Amino acid sequence: MNDLEVRQLRYFVAVAEELHFGRAAARLGMAQPPLSRAIRDIERQLGVALFERTTRQVKLTAAGEVLLRDARTALEAVSAAAHRARQAGSASPRLRVALKADIDGGLLPHILDAYGADEASLPPELVLGGFGEQPQALRDGLADVGLVLCPFDSRGLDSEPLLTEPVLVALAAADPLAARTRLCLDDLAGRELPDGSPAGDGRPGGHSSHPGAPRPASNLSEIFSLVETGTIVFFAPASVARRYPRPGISFRPVSDLPDATLAVAWPQDARSPAVAAFVRAACAVAAAQTDPLPPGFPSGRPAGHARSE
């Protein structure tokens, strides 16, 4: 049996994720008949059925489920290898740091200063992305190290926790709940997060994944503008409340909302001295974290430290 080609894996993954040959063909920029023939060729080559096809739907078989999992990993590895080769071959390679803007626990400037003192090389390149996109950027070779919020998809990655801090809810200052000093998730029943999901569920509420969902607010400025109007509420690490006070917004602790832990993450196979230097700098800065929040706000603390009430 011949090995599958990268092109074949891309065809298969598109159909497996869309579960619709027409949508998969459009996604790949090709006509549907040659895509259908390509999938049949893959099944003949493997000697197994990958899809159950009826006039109403397309479903993955057990063999298809296994191939989808491994094909995604293989395509990630191929893409990462290309990106890392280009990076290594550039005239002046720079360390690439993946992060979501403003979600750094206030540590990033101090980490960059400490890294600059440790590494006599070019300043790092910041690779900005949306909520939860940083782990995939590391796997895809688009970044060398990242600052991520836990929990996250850690496949193929190592990490070290840096800072744990409370998560607060941002409410319109005119919201009746803003008159209270502490809330619980039940108090937020009926309120919506930026992606339209219910705040009472207690999940972050970044991007909605269902087809046809409206584009969620993409940055803090948009989110805070909607919060001020009372349209939504927003869960934010306490450091965000410290750095972005707004008169039209009240931040309140939520007693049954889990704390947020910021971690530094990197690919498991990384052997770069620059990555090691950045991780050392991040851990040292987090261990020395003493920057308190203004009165009334619970402060962050190095990850692993007991919380004082």
Score class of each variant (00 low, 15 high):
residue 173 A to D: 04
residue 147 L to D: 02
residue 122 L to V: 07
residue 183 L to E: 02
residue 91 A to K: 13
residue 104 D to W: 08
residue 149 L to Q: 13
residue 159 S to C: 10
residue 137 A to L: 15
residue 127 V to R: 12
residue 170 A to T: 06
residue 116 G to F: 06
residue 100 K to F: 00
residue 57 Q to N: 10
residue 138 L to Y: 03
residue 65 E to T: 11
residue 132 G to M: 12
residue 70 D to L: 12
residue 182 R to Q: 14
residue 183 L to A: 08
residue 95 L to S: 08
residue 150 C to Y: 03
residue 139 R to N: 00
residue 161 P to L: 05
residue 165 E to C: 12
residue 151 P to F: 11
residue 109 P to Q: 07
residue 175 D to S: 03
residue 59 K to Q: 14
residue 78 V to T: 09
residue 135 P to C: 04
residue 149 L to T: 13
residue 57 Q to A: 15
residue 115 Y to W: 12
residue 177 L to S: 01
residue 184 C to G: 13
residue 95 L to T: 05
residue 171 L to Q: 03
residue 103 I to M: 12
residue 95 L to N: 05
residue 83 H to G: 01
residue 77 A to L: 11
residue 134 Q to C: 07
residue 63 A to E: 14
residue 162 L to C: 08
residue 105 G to Q: 07
residue 89 G to F: 04
residue 70 D to M: 06
residue 63 A to Y: 13
residue 59 K to P: 00
residue 132 G to C: 09
residue 120 A to W: 04
residue 101 A to M: 11
residue 132 G to S: 15
residue 80 A to K: 10
residue 163 L to R: 04
residue 67 L to V: 05
residue 136 Q to P: 00
residue 178 A to E: 00
residue 92 S to L: 12
residue 180 R to M: 05
residue 178 A to S: 14
residue 68 L to T: 09
residue 127 V to W: 05
residue 57 Q to D: 12
residue 182 R to D: 03
residue 113 D to I: 00
residue 182 R to V: 14
residue 145 V to S: 07
residue 157 L to W: 09
residue 163 L to V: 06
residue 181 T to M: 02
residue 84 R to D: 04
residue 166 P to E: 04
residue 174 A to G: 13
residue 93 P to H: 05
residue 120 A to S: 13
residue 162 L to D: 01
residue 143 A to M: 06
residue 102 D to G: 04
residue 118 D to W: 07
residue 143 A to V: 01
residue 89 G to I: 02
residue 107 L to Q: 09
residue 110 H to A: 15
residue 120 A to Y: 00
residue 87 Q to P: 00
residue 162 L to E: 07
residue 134 Q to Y: 01
